[in-house]
Design a protein around this nucleic acid. Structure first.
Lengths: 338, 338
DNA sequence: CTGAAAGCGCTTACAG
DNA sequence: CTGAAAGCGCTTACAG
């Protein structure tokens, strides 16, 4: 790129016949400038097709006007509404968004941190995408961070935005028990140590307990919150015969694999086995049968998380814990009629 | 954030007892430094938990080491593999990724361009997310740009990465004609002026022509590449009775709406109407019935686009047009057996 | 192999 | 309302 072609604030200043300080003022509206002067400066800007150099502004003003998002991956239907909410929130607040997906395969060697205090004003951190050590470091220098779907490490006061996992799970399992008379309910866990999964399992156990059903560990499998792992886990379980009457698949993605495995083994859903999910992903209503699930306000999580983060950046008060409500969505995969 | 807490290159230099130039050299490996000196500097860096300030490096070195991605939205199953590929490509090349979704509702007033030469070394531009005027401006200053799924405006030589839309569409329509004896084939267009849609329609018409079927404009509807619009379009068409034997729904997202509309009207897929899509989205195989479609190498598109862009940034030669192959994927929604 | 110094393009007290 | 000047934290010729 021929950088000589690129106009700077000085070019604008000389063309308009003012100082660079004045140009800066009209660009930022940071103090009173005479109407005529404004006109001249704006004309010069238009003439030169001038765009302020972002890095120079950052360096001089010590604000990046950018928030960072750390994700474990960009895939799965779950992240779509999350990203949509975050994008929207950032736009509303006038911040740019820098996204980085952490990849376990790459070692963290070297100084260069992809996202941090050197290129953002604050960070949104999704479950397990930043180790506790780095979280501690950011906290120790007072850098704004908001956690998504993940509690902070012990004794660190970092704001969190998440959803009512436990009560949502409890409600849907209760629905299986009370409305459909289920007693032997399989639960498919998410990835190991995944907090959403941990809380959903608590809700599952609570519902069993409330209705006098003994918890049976052999009905709990790891499904990893994805179709493949879930299909395999269920196929393995089915090889011992169908020792269950229903499945709470942990999330909607898993439900896809679960239904495939059941079909392949010749079982009908919901006639032979009731299946329910969690999230109310975009595809849930178009599954066959339409999936009974728990609606999670994922887009709102994204939006609210940005709001919280921006408040921290502006040194305003924030909620230490924002837990958004979930809601039971009855469709047909549990055995209810349309 | 207490910026006083943040160590700078000077802090590292004094702790290590060297000049800041030397610190810069060990960080960047930009020239020979004595082994002992390196050790001392690295110890100081570790000690202070020093991270170089990104904006300062950008300003001094005149490179951002960042590529920008302009998208019309982040949603729809289509964007997942695209983002995955772009993320991967950027990581491989050692570039950061800045994402901005353009929103038609916001006017482009003001100087502040979200993504451009002031904060990136190059831009990936997806269909219709940047107007021709801005594209011209970027081209005129020699700024690296790669277009995705979109040809450049007339006379601008901007590299493109896209897929074989026409031949893919032609193959799948041909399959309907030759294997399933279809003659009255509905085509659902994407959004207006969407290039993928234009090429797919060409493939559709070519296949008809090759097999002596007269093109019937009343069988072409706008489906917008989304389930809702497609469902409505088809429901409208069905109100005149079922004057067709099959549907090429333009993309997989549309196929969802198409199948819903058919079911609601009491028609079976594929017994009464064959339905095929395009993309081979993640959900295509789990639809009911599993969707016959055209597999698009969307992840590869993302990855290759980054490669091209990086080559331009490095002033290396690039392909002016990279067109990745598509492939017919036969499942059951066309009437074939499993 | 190392340092002193200029410069990247802005913002922001400080004066007036 | 406006300007001169210092400074943000780096990189990079230029000397030695």
């Amino acid at each position: 790129m021929p950088s000589s072609h690129r106009p700077t604030i000085s070019d604008v200043a000389s063309l308009a016949g003012v100082s660079i300080a004045t140009v800066s003022r009209v660009i930022n509206g940071s103090s009173q400038v005479a109407g005529q002067t404004i006109q001249r400066v704006q004309a010069a800007i238009t003439d030169l097709k001038y765009t302020p150099h972002a890095a120079a502004r950052v360096l001089a003003s010590r604000k990046t006007n950018t928030i960072g998002l750390l994700l474990p991956e960009i895939s799965g239907a779950f992240f779509q509404p999350l990203l949509r909410g975050i994008e929207a929130g950032a736009q509303e607040a006038g911040f740019d968004l820098l996204i980085h997906t952490t990849d376990d395969t790459q070692s963290n060697a070297g100084i260069r941190r992809p996202l941090g205090e050197h290129n953002t004003d604050g960070l949104l951190v999704f479950t397990d995408s930043l180790d506790h050590k780095e979280l501690r470091r950011l906290h120790s220098i007072g850098f704004p961070v908001v956690l998504l779907h993940q509690a902070p490490p012990k004794s660190l006061m970092i704001p969190v935005v998440t959803i009512e996992n436990q009560s949502g799970a409890q409600k849907i399992v209760e629905h299986l028990i009370v409305v459909h008379g289920c007693r032997r309910i399989v639960f498919l866990q998410g990835p190991e140590d995944h907090e959403d999964s941990v809380w959903r399992e608590k809700g599952y156990r609570q519902a069993l307990k409330d209705h006098g059903i003994t918890f049976n560990p052999s009905l709990v499998l790891r499904g990893g919150f994805n179709p493949d792992e879930s299909r395999q886990a269920l196929t393995r379980l089915l090889s011992n015969g169908k020792g269950f009457d229903s499945i709470f698949s942990g999330d909607d993605d898993s439900a896809i694999g679960v239904i495939q495995a059941l079909r392949q083994a010749g079982w009908r859903v919901p006639e032979d086995v009731a299946v329910v999910g969690f999230d109310d992903s975009s595809f849930a209503r178009t599954l066959d049968p339409p999936l009974t699930t728990v609606s999670a306000p994922t887009e709102r999580v994204g939006r609210e998380a940005v709001r919280q983060l921006v408040r921290i950046i502006r040194a305003e008060k924030v909620e230490p814990r924002l837990i958004l409500p979930t809601e039971l969505v009855i469709r047909q995969s549990c055995g209810c009629q349309a």
